[in-house]
Amino acid sequence: MDVKEQIKVLLREAEVYQRQGLYGEAKIKYGKAVDIIRSIERVKNREQLLEGIQAKIDAIEQSVQKIIKAEMHPKISARIQDLIQEKFSFSGDRDQASLEGAIALAKFGQYERALKEFDSLIGKDALRFEAAKNMIRCHLAMASADNADAAVDQYRQWLDADILSVEELHRIRAFLDTHLHQKGISAFLPIPGAKETVAEFEVGMPVSGTSDETEADLETPDEDMVDINAVSFALDHGPLKEKKFELEVSFQSGNTISFIIPGKETSLLDNLTVGHKIGDVQFFSSIAIFEASALVSAKTEIKSGPKQGSFSLDLKIMSA
């Protein structure tokens, strides 16, 4: 194939890919055409041709940017919200189906409507805790990276109202505490039943990428896990291989438990990277000891407050 024909083919392909919305592929083809044209001096109208192709590449770039910047969860009409609520609730039980519908709305980013739906379910004994927890999730998902005022205000409102039991409030507090901690937000969360209390921890700057995790977290109940007091495990690699460690749990939310590890424990901290799976962890609770594997799900340096320099480490209990 002669060069002219080669360029023609590349441009034709690029145009079709562009029309199809296959921007990456279109850009590659335009790029190849540019390379060929640049390598040959004697192409007719060389500069105009290059300018024309560059304009097309720029247009693609603009389209790509628009897609990247497009809102992931735009507000949609009430009719479509109704459809989501109806079509994404599967339970035969009416109340449970209402909860599923509200969770689906939240998963599709329709947080305001989801909040209303969860609020209407708070009065139902069997759903109260799940509805409350998901309301906190919605508030957190709607909040900016370093602000969780609405979630904290909601928790405080429940503290003052006679809606949730003390036990439920404790669980909500632990849940909110963990999420604030993951976001690196310091907030004072009064302990249910206590007249005066202090915040358990203060951490510094927000940790990036946590809002998506909050959103992805909108899942089914995970609160059936017993309260874990401590864990014991041996490292399976590195210079401290087979050395046993015992750590005390500082807080727990469902199957995720958190620890504060002093910064000087560098060997341990270096071994516990996010995503690392630890096999044969012993979990100690007041009612049982059990073994399971665990996943390091977060590790955050505490940058201010009394624990400054220490690390907060989250372990997700995988399977017993």
């Binding site: 919305g21 389209s63 628009k66 897609i67 910047k69 497009a70 735009p74 479509i80 459809l83």
Partner: peptide
């Protein structure tokens, strides 16, 4: 037919 799409006619939900 209900379509929930975003920039460039890409299906969103």
């Amino acid at each position: 037919m209900v379509s929930i799409d975003t920039e460039g006619d890409r299906t969103l939900f």
